[in-house]
Structures are given as C-alpha cells and as structure tokens.
Design a protein around this nucleic acid. Sequence first.
DNA 1: ACCTGAACACCGTTCAAGT
DNA 2: ACCTGAACACCGTTCAAGT
Lengths: 223, 223
Amino acid sequence: MAGETHRPERRADALTKERIVEAAVALLDAGGADGLTFRALAARLATGSGAIYWHIADKHALLAAATDHVIARALADRVASAPPREAIRALALAVFDAIDAHPWVGAQLSGDPWQYAVLCILAGIGAQVTALGVAERHRFNAATALLSFVLGLAGQYAVGSRLVGGDKDRAAFLRDVAARWAQLDPERHPFVRQVAARLAEHDDREQFLAGIDLILAGLERAH
Amino acid sequence: MAGETHRPERRADALTKERIVEAAVALLDAGGADGLTFRALAARLATGSGAIYWHIADKHALLAAATDHVIARALADRVASAPPREAIRALALAVFDAIDAHPWVGAQLSGDPWQYAVLCILAGIGAQVTALGVAERHRFNAATALLSFVLGLAGQYAVGSRLVGGDKDRAAFLRDVAARWAQLDPERHPFVRQVAARLAEHDDREQFLAGIDLILAGLERAH
DNA sequence: ACCTGAACACCGTTCAAGT
DNA sequence: ACCTGAACACCGTTCAAGT
C-alpha cells in the first residue's frame, strides 16, 4: 500500500499523444501544413523524431488528430438549445471560425472528408436537420448537402488565408484575384468579370451564411 | 521564300507543355497524386527531370495545368442551349463525371480553388444563374454557393475513389465506413448511426443531383 | 533555345541500439 | 515500455555543362 504512493513520478516531459498533438497544432498554426515535419516536431518536444511513432501511426494520423482536436473544441463551445435553424447556422459558423483561426484545418477537412472530425460535424448537422422536421428519407441528402457546402467553402477559404498573416493578407489576396478576373476576356467570361468587384469587397462570413440560408430555404420548400 | 519551306522539322519527340501535361495526366490516372513525380515524368518522356522546368514553373503549376486540361475537356463536351435549370445540372454532372474518371481532379479542385479550372466552372454556373433570372445582387452568393457545394462533394467523392480501382473498390470503401459508423455510440451519434445503412447503398450521382436541386429550390424560393 | 543529369536540401519512416 | 538518432529511400528544384 505504502509502496504505491511512492511509485516513480512520470517524467514531467514524458511524451503523450496529447502533448504531441498540441505541439503539432502550434507548428501548423505558425507555418501552415508545410510547417509540420517530424523533425521540427521532435525538436519542439526535445525528443528524437522516431519517438513520435511510438504514439502516433504516421503523418496522416497526426494531421487527423490535430484536426479532431481543433474541431472538437469548436463544436463544444457552442451553446445548445437553440431552434434548429439557428443551431445549424451556429454550427456552421463554429466550423467557419475554427478554420479562420487555423486555416490548415480547412484543407485537412476537405482533403480527408471521412475522418472523425467530419463525422462529428455531420452528426451535429443531422441532429438539427432531424429537429427541423425533414422526412427521414430526405435527411441523408439534406445533411450531406449542407456538409458538402461547408467543406467546399472551407477549402476555398483556407487557401486565401494560407499565405500567412492576418486579414490584411487575405484582403490583398482577394484584391489580386479580383484584378486578374477583371482582365479576363469579357466575351468568354462575362459573369466572372461582373462579380470581380464584388469579390474584393465581399464579407466571407456573410457569403457563408447566405449559402447556408439558401440550402435551408430549399429544404423548407421541399416539405 | 523557298528557304522557309525547308526549315528544319522539329524533332518528333520535342518537349512541349502539351506533351508534358498529357503525360502528367496519364501518371495521375495510373497512380493518383503520388504517382506524379518529376522523375517518373522525365522517364516517361525520355528526358531529364530538369528539362521539364523549361516548360513549366513547378509542380503546383503542373497539377493546375493537368486539372485545366481535364476540366476544359469536360466543359466543352456539354451540349449548350438547354433551359438554365437543366444546364446547371448538366454542368455539375460534367464536373462530377470528370472527377469520376480522374479522381485526383477532385482533390486538386478543392485544394486549389482559385485556379483557372475553377474559374471556368464558376463562369459556367454564373451564366446560368443569370439566365435563371436571379437578381444581380444575389448572383455572386448564389453562384459561389453552388460552386462550394460542387467542390465540397468533389473532394468527398475523390477520396473514396482514391484507393485505386473501379466501382467495386468504392463500394467496398463505403461499406467499411458504414460498418464503422454503425458501431458508434448511439447516444452520442444517433443520426450517423441511422444513416449508416443509407450510406452503403446510396447512389453518388443521385445524392449529388439532390444537393444541386436543393440549392436551386432555395434560389426559386428567394425570388 | 533547349536539354542533361548530378547535386542539394530536404522529406517520412524504420530500426538496431540504448534506458 | 519507451526513447534515440543514424540510415534509407525517396522527394522537388537548381544549375553548370552540354548541343
């Protein structure tokens, strides 16, 4: 009995999956997807690069675990008990804001849509689609349509933010794209030229919610 | 004058950007994104790996050019002059089928949504959204919502097909996912468990069109 | 102008060897 | 059981040297 209380303390800096994932998130936030290497991770954790493989299978699993970590936190922060329509908007915005804070998550979600984090998002959407009163046979298509939209814009948004830095960089990026679009052949791409101006001045969040509302409006019309 | 007709023929196997892109598409089709390396490409073209850089800036540009090649062909194959609603469905299906034939295109479109190929898709969607009579101030959000959905499902679909092979492999992949989902905690993920059965038996094309129709229904409701 | 191919600076992953 | 770090088999990209 007494012996148990004296069992050796774990070294304060012992490797755990959690510590590895937290360090990975920090590297990804600082340097994007390219910033995460096993060598950089080992250096930050003051260990050998091979040690990480004792706790995590490979880089694919490491990226998935880092994404799970961010998304789980984002989904947990929501307040529950809102009407379904608002709950879907809140859920989508939570994902959107998580990608805003961690742009690499956007690419990871759309690049590996069968990972656990995406399943959690789908579960959240599905619960609200059910609460909305959508007939059982339409729920699957309705929920996956919302999910596809969220993941699609997630990828799109992530790329604009990827070029490091804050909102200024994204604004500059969009200005560049808009300028390129404005120079297109008006004959072949009249629409794109037309919306080029809107692109530079548009608000991502507003565009995102408009898309969600569009799908929700379609859902209401269907039943 | 006579001299011009005798100017030396280009060597039959001279490198051109077009030949490089075609070889890249072949490698991508055969081995997915991992199948494309400058060494494999050089071997297939019977040249040195450095020679490719004379015609194409880097790997990012090469992947974009390969994607442009596939998407341009897919969009050109459509029959024009359908009513806008049908035209949007046809356009979306053309993209869907291109990804079905070349799964790596899905990942590339969602991973780099500002490339020219995506702009062409947006241009096509925008033209039909305009023809549909959507008010000018709603066109940008409507067209980008459709685009985001297409890119989102593109990414999702591509991953399932990535594991090489034909429809059998995708069916097996979905069965595996469905089996994993069916084992989830019914308390935490009731919806996902419920739709797991539907996942294994669902038709991708039908699901895709249902999403498009949902957004179109939302559009009609809005005006 | 266009091509060659060795060289450079990286990767992810493995594994004998340590504690 | 867990960690070390050199070694392996690759990458994309560059660049002096060729034609």
